[in-house]
Structures are given as structure tokens and as C-alpha cells.
Nucleic acid binder design. Structure first.
Lengths: 211, 211
DNA sequence: TAGATTGTTAATCGATTAACAATC
DNA sequence: TAGATTGTTAATCGATTAACAATC
């Protein structure tokens, strides 16, 4: 069993992409793949591919390459929990709707239990099969259902307060679409940020300076 | 005038965040800020803040700090074009809807001109004030209106073909929500990727291994 | 066995952090 | 002037790439 360096964040961020390509290959009936073939589709080097996998204990066979099915399975085990992680959505506006829909098609690893909003006219409606509840119910709901992950789709003004509340209620992991930065005030919390505004601004910079 | 090292990608990705915080400070009436104060809110070091700004030619005053209004303005000029960049949306499904809405509130730098879809039942409808057109019209539309940026909200199966078409029609910059990787086949194209599936999978990894 | 390709160590590269002279 | 804080160079750190021995 080879060395297992704790994987760094860049390595972890590449895992889903490997997983995706391996899934495609498996579907196409490809049974084995070399680090250099994987590197080409990933847009990286064979060296990096091997380094990456060796963080988790080397799934390959010297002289042969990697077994596509096995590697895909192993990465799947690393990435996804055995049971779907109970998840709630905070903020049922436009973005919240899109994300709820996203969960419906691509639920692997997560199960959306409920949505919450403050707007009275939304409460009681359903969103992709889950009820939209009053934020006032959040505490009792969490006490009963113990969600582990929250998707934050509230405007920035509300985000700080919502975050504080959820953390107090025991939620430790967030898929965060708001512009509030959890990481600075709560370093122990798991947060995956999707900052659409920053992404668009980055594109604007590139267009402005390189087109 | 100080040295202007060409900014690296990590620097560029931090610009919108600086811009955001400086905007907030300006609104609050703060007139000056030091690199260490900025570092604290950004979650980084004073050294990095100064290095970052010096890529663009040092906006500060030794012994004093940075003028909030001026720095905010200068970053704005770097990030956003003088005139909004004409933009089209490809794919008017759930995600497309959310993104069109996003453009309505946060248009700074971009102007959404039109949306395109293949589904006959969607064509002719409007989406946040822009018409949804038939993909068949894409070529003539681009010839007439010369959009510069396309937002890609189509499923992965369609993405490769759509990308090829848009690149042939002269579009050079993409805000890409599909799982197709432009960068490998078209290295000269400007692409800002938002891979929601990968982001969610990364969160799943973290939850699975650190919670 | 010879060829291929991994696992792993070493070298390089780039980004971040530290230090300090310049100067307001 | 003294204190503060930048701009910039130097040191460190970490990630990527190269090299090569191990081995299928």
C-alpha cells in the first residue's frame, strides 16, 4: 500500500472531474486507462494524475494502467456518502428554485428535505416536491429532522443572520450562493462557495482586458 | 509609477472580492483603508493585498494607506467595460431562467440581449424582458447584433455542438454552466466556468470525510 | 524477457508571506 | 521629526512537473 499524503484542496477539487470522465468512459465500454490518457482529457499532466490518485493509495497497476470501473467506484466511495445527506434549502427565490430543480435531477449524495423562506406568500407552496416552510419553523424542524447540509440562496443582507442561526442549530456544512463569507467568522465550518457575481466579474475582467 | 507584473489568475479572481468590500466601505462612509484592514476582511495577509494592487500599479500612499473611493473606482475600471457587453443566453430551462433573472438585478458590465432555445413551446415567450428565440435564428441574429458573450445553460450533451457553433459565429467569451470543457479544445477562448455538479461533489467529499 | 506504466522521490515553478527601505 | 504604511525585494511554502526505479 503506497504512501497516503493527505490530499490538498486542489486535488480534492479535481476529484469530481476525474469521476465524471471515468463515468463517461465506463459507459462507452472502456475498461482500462493510463495516466497519460486521463491527463489528456483532463487537460493536465500524467504526473499530476498519478500524484493525485496516490493521495488516496494508488489504484493502478504498474505496467498496465488503471481499471476504469474500479477507479470510478473508488472515487465514488471517496466523494459520496453511503446514504444521501439530509439537506435543506434556505431561500426559495429564483436561485433557490433553480437549485431545488438541480437537486431533483442530480441528487447523488444529497437528499433535499425541505425549503424555507420568509415571504408569507411562498409558505405552503411546494418546490420540486418539497414544502416551502416558514423560517420561524426552522428551529423545531432542525430539532426533529437533523439536516446536515444547508443550501444558502438568500440575499446577502440576510445571509449573516441565517448562517448564525443554522450554525447554532448544529448545521456544519453549507453550499453557499450568498456573498457572505462564512470562512472568516467560522473557520471550522465546511463551506463550498458559488459566488456567481464574482464569477461574472472575473469574466468581465477577462473580456475587458483580453478581447 | 511602480512595477506592473502581469496579474496571475489567483490575483484576478480576488479582484471582484476587493471591489465588493471596497464598495461596502464606501457606502458606510469609510474614506481610507490600510492593507492590513483589507486583509482582515478578505481573510488574507497585508502582504498579499499590497502585492495584488501593485500588479496594476499601486493605488496607495506610503504612510497613509489606500483611498477607498479611488481604489474602488480604479478596480471598477479594470473589471468592467465602459459600455455593457452585449450578451446572449443559450438554453432557457431552469438554470437559464435563474441566470436571466440574475442578469436583471446584477447587470453591471453586461447587457442581456436575447435568449435561445430549441424547444418549440418556449420560442416566442419572454424571459425577464428578453425574447426567447429559435436556435435556428442564431446565425442571422449574431450577424446582425454581434453579441460578444454567451451564457451556456444547455445540458452537457448539447454543449459541445453549441460551443462549436457560437465560436464559428465569432463569440469569444463564455459564462459556462455546462459540463463541457471548452478550454481543452479551444485554448484561445475566454471561459469562466461554473460547474455546479463539481461544486456539490466537492462539498460531498468534505462532508463525507470531515464531518 | 522486453515494453509499458505505475508509484515515488527529486527538481522546478509559481504563489504567498516576510522583511525592509522608501516616503508620506 | 516620528510614526505609519506603502512598494518592492527576498525567503518560504506548496503545488506541479520531471525523472526513474519498481514491477506487472
Amino acid at each position: 500500500m503506497p504512501t497516503q499524503n493527505k490530499p490538498s484542496l486542489p486535488v480534492i477539487k479535481r476529484l469530481p472531474k476525474y469521476y465524471r470522465y471515468l463515468g463517461e468512459m465506463e459507459k462507452e465500454g472502456v475498461t482500462k486507462v493510463s495516466s497519460s490518457e486521463l491527463a489528456r482529457v483532463m487537460g493536465t499532466t500524467a504526473s499530476q494524475v498519478r500524484q493525485d490518485f496516490n493521495c488516496f493509495g494508488g489504484f493502478g497497476q504498474q505496467g498496465i494502467g488503471y481499471n476504469v470501473k474500479l477507479l470510478h467506484e473508488e472515487l465514488g466511495k471517496l466523494i459520496f456518502a453511503r446514504h444521501p445527506v439530509p439537506t435543506i434549502l434556505i431561500g426559495a427565490g429564483n436561485l433557490g428554485h433553480a437549485m431545488a430543480n438541480y437537486f431533483r435531477q442530480d441528487t447523488q449524495g444529497f437528499e433535499l428535505l425541505a425549503a424555507f423562506d420568509v415571504k408569507p406568500e411562498m409558505i405552503g407552496l411546494t418546490l420540486c416536491g418539497v414544502a416551502i416552510r416558514d423560517m420561524a419553523e426552522l428551529e423545531s424542524y432542525c430539532a426533529e429532522h437533523k439536516p446536515k447540509v444547508a443550501v444558502i440562496c438568500v440575499p446577502r443582507e440576510a445571509a449573516k443572520q441565517v448562517a448564525q442561526k443554522l450554525i447554532d442549530l448544529g448545521i456544519r456544512a453549507f453550499w453557499n450562493f450568498s456573498h457572505y463569507d462564512f470562512s472568516i467568522e467560522y473557520p471550522d465550518i465546511i463551506v463550498e462557495n458559488v459566488h456567481l457575481g464574482d464569477s461574472l466579474a472575473t469574466l468581465s475582467y477577462e473580456v475587458n482586458n483580453n478581447l
